[in-house]
Design a protein around this nucleic acid. Structure first.
Lengths: 200, 200
DNA sequence: ATTATCTATAGATCTATAGATAATGC
DNA sequence: ATTATCTATAGATCTATAGATAATGC
């Protein structure tokens, strides 16, 4: 049965497709879920996809943007809600077992970074903007003499969190996985790396 | 024309296929090159593949192992050949524009990490072993009070290098790309983060 | 009348296998 | 006789499009 819906409902469908893609892509990779299966999740049929988007590539860019915006919102809440050490609060969440086990709702870089580097510029432009927002946010929450130094600290902290999560998810050894998450998290404590690490 | 070759030659073919896969997978992803195209590169035909390997998955594990072993050899040379600061010597090479532009011969984690986390355990076991070797190597080359602390420093340093390369390759902005590579590299200087960063 | 969705399919691509062929290695 | 490689193809899957349908919105 063919059912044409209102414009409002169509806009909802579009949002559903993008949200679903943002989650599934992070879980399975850009090539890990087909247009047909994404449409099935939205309870629509395959062919209808091309009324919403020009191509799968366009959806990839939109889904990446969605994932980045959702993460930005989460970060803002965490950084603003932190009592003493916003970076440590973020690191605790970012490097949690929960985040490790749930790539579909997590940071795009450990989930899709390797594939993003091979995407066309349309996708990498969106990602670049999101990355700049993250660095800006984090830089404002970090201690440091100058804005330039806070920015440098933010870049290094973010890189270590992403690399830590990537390694934790790559290993098949749960002990090593936990060791990596904990070690990187503790290295970001404002007490300084050595004091915090030697304390444990 | 069908040409059966000697056992020695067959072993060479096998090596060629694995080496080619180790490079192409890092360049294009595990799904970015087909069995047929890999065999074409080795100047063999598609069907012959299954005389060498049971499946593409088996080749993925072997190619990952190859990539990890090649990187281990490179790291050993760099760490052993360094005059004063082995970690900085490694970071200079790892976070170079050259490495950024050539994923096919570089570290497997920024090139394939997101996909590795979705691979079956056969692949992730191989990767885990390679990762443990890297951490061991790096820990021996790093300054620190105890072996445990050297290991922690090694994990954090490696995570930041991987995350830095992943971000550098994800951005479409060459200025941001260079900023990330330089900033993470300088953070690994043994002078300490702040002194080195404020000096520039 | 317009258009959001559906049905059906074209065309490309991919992994894996079956059976044939011809050179190796006993 | 054994076997490394080749030819040919089965079977699955994927993106994208063409044309039909029926509800919206003027």
């Amino acid at each position: 049965m063919i059912v044409r819906v209102s414009r409002e409902k169509m806009a909802e469908h579009r949002e559903t497709i993008i949200s679903s893609a943002a989650k599934r892509f992070r879980e399975r990779g850009f090539e890990g879920i087909s247009v047909a299966d994404l449409m099935k999740e939205a309870e629509l049929t395959h062919g209808g996809f091309y009324g919403h988007f020009e191509s799968k590539e366009e959806l990839i860019a939109l889904a990446a943007e969605r994932a980045l915006r959702d993460s930005t919102a989460k970060w803002e809440k965490i950084l603003d809600g932190a009592k003493s050490d916003p970076l440590q609060a973020l690191a605790d969440t970012y490097l949690s077992q929960r985040h490790c086990d749930n790539p579909g709702t997590g940071c795009i870089f450990p989930a899709l970074g390797s594939e993003i580097s091979r995407q066309p510029e349309s996708v990498r432009n969106v990602v670049t903007q999101g990355l700049q927002r993250f660095v800006g946010l984090l830089g404002r929450a970090i201690k440091g003499k100058s804005p330039a130094q806070r920015r440098r600290k933010a870049i290094v902290a973010y890189a270590s969190m992403i690399g830590g999560m990537l390694l934790a998810r790559s290993t098949s050894d749960p002990v090593l996985c936990r060791e990596i998450l904990r070690t990187v998290s503790e290295s970001l404590s404002s007490d300084g790396v050595s004091s915090n690490l030697t304390a444990k």
